[in-house]
């Protein structure tokens, strides 16, 4: 097992970013730092991935960017979630729960099909 495949997680980068923006605006590095720590250091988002997610979501109207002076006196681009971003986030959450529900039916770390499942296929 060698970490998370970026292929799988790609569809949910947006969800993670939107989650972090739910209660306050934030900027690039802070978001990447929070993703790293919330995931227990298991997922590190690349800078380019993050930036392309920002631009894509800004284009779709899910987030808005604005620039602001940071504590250290430098200008920084902050991102704020929009109403349609919140809606999209809820949709994605539902989608994920459904996905999780479906996929987990097929997950067996030991590599064996479970009894109940065999019963279902046997009876039909």
């Amino acid at each position: 097992m060698s970490g998370i495949s970026s292929d799988v997680i790609r569809g949910y980068n947006d969800t993670m970013i939107l989650y972090l923006l739910l209660d306050r605006p934030s900027y690039g590095y802070e978001i990447s730092k929070m993703i790293r720590s919330l995931s227990g250091e298991k997922y590190v988002i690349k800078e380019t991935t993050l930036y392309s997610a920002f631009t894509r979501m800004e284009k779709n109207g899910f987030i808005m960017s604005f620039s602001q002076l940071a504590e250290n006196g430098k200008r920084r681009t902050y991102y704020r979630i929009t109403e349609s971003g919140r809606r999209y986030y809820r949709d994605k959450c539902e989608e994920w729960l459904l996905t999780q529900e479906v996929i987990s039916k097929f997950i067996s770390p030991k590599g064996q099909r479970s009894l109940t499942e065999r019963d279902v296929t046997g009876s039909s």
């Binding site: 900027y27 690039g28 590095y29 730092k33 930036y51 430098k74 681009t77």
Partner: peptide, 16 residues
């Protein structure tokens, strides 16, 4: 703009 923002992130990360 992309270069700017990537630079911001890299700079922040480096500083930290």
């Amino acid at each position: 703009r992309a270069m700017d923002e990537l630079w911001q992130m890299m700079e922040d990360k480096y500083t930290e």
